[in-house]
Amino acid sequence: MQIHAIHAGHFSCDGGALFSVIPKPLWTKAYPADENNVTRLTMRCLLVDQGERKILIEAGVGDHYPEKVKRNNGHEETDALPGSLAEKGYLVGDITDVVFTHLHWDHCNGAVLKEEQSLKLLFPNATHWCSKRQWEHAQVSNMRERAAYFYDVLNFLKAEGNMQLVENEGELFPDFEVRFFDGHTPGQMIPLVKHEGKTYVYTSDLIPTTANIPIVWLASYDLYPVTTMEEKEAFLKEAADNKYVLFFEHDFYSECATVEWTDRGPKLKEVFSLSK
């Protein structure tokens, strides 16, 4: 098996949204912002090459938006995914499986191309996966979250992308386990990949950046913040005990990290890149 970090572009986010009730003088020490309180985020996919099976986790934001939306959300290099794969020696046709942690626009829309008035799969040979709970939730989502779902893209993936809905936690592929977390959005599906004696956890929006490791440092995007805190606490205790490698999808500055558990809760231990 080989694993590779794959670049899918950058975007931006208001710092208050990324850190919720945490005061700005505190969070800016952990994660930079510009003069407009805007933080820079990235979309970092993970490619798991198991030989005949080549699994890509997430697909980025894609290019489905008016210029105003791109400008307001700081979109950069959102067409980078095929080129990033090519740098590692892969074509889009090589990808056999695309796993979505959830169906918000910055996680799955990049799997679909928009050409004039038509939609097209970026990964024509791939089976696409998400949790059944997330799929069903997306169909009835509340007013606050609904803008994060692009139903033309989702329905196209379901009809043309062989979308498979995962009902149970556990092994999805050899050495590739998924677990469900509901605080950010119901049925967020977090992959745990075993590789060379280590467990790599694709943290997605459970822990968007290293600065979100403290239990109460939540993003405002979490639908159920108390649930997120409970899920983070249990997971980070497990991560510290088992020396998991956390792989961050959105942290512009840090790719991977380990954590330790202290009498004050989880603490960032070591930061490094996947190629270390």
Rank of each mutant, 00 (worst) to 15 (best):
G197C: 07
R40G: 00
F247E: 04
A257Q: 03
S275A: 12
P214H: 15
T39Y: 06
P186C: 04
L121G: 02
L103A: 03
R133P: 00
Q117Y: 05
T185A: 04
G15M: 02
E67Q: 12
V99M: 12
E177N: 01
H64E: 03
H64A: 01
K29P: 08
F100Y: 15
T258A: 06
A86I: 08
K114M: 09
P82G: 13
E177A: 04
W129A: 00
G62Y: 04
K70I: 05
A30P: 02
K269I: 02
L223Y: 03
P186V: 07
L121D: 01
V69W: 10
R53C: 03
T228N: 08
G170C: 11
H10S: 09
Q188L: 10
G265R: 11
E52Q: 12
K158T: 01
T199L: 11
G83P: 00
L154Q: 05
A257W: 13
T262C: 00
T127Q: 13
Q50D: 14
C13W: 12
C108E: 10
K276W: 10
W27H: 14
D49S: 00
A30L: 12
I95E: 03
G89T: 05
Q50T: 04
T28Q: 15
I6Y: 08
Q117P: 02
E77P: 01
L236M: 15
D63T: 06
T28Y: 08
E77I: 09
Y253Q: 04
V69H: 08
N36M: 05
L192C: 15
P25S: 08
F19P: 11
C13T: 07
I57H: 02
R264T: 09
S12N: 09
N242Y: 10
I190N: 09
E67D: 15
A211G: 00
L47K: 12
N168K: 15
L85D: 05
L154Y: 05
G183H: 07
P225R: 13
Q139G: 02
D34T: 00
P66N: 09
T258Y: 04
T78W: 07
E116T: 10
H184R: 13
A147R: 13
W129V: 03
V48T: 05
F173Q: 08
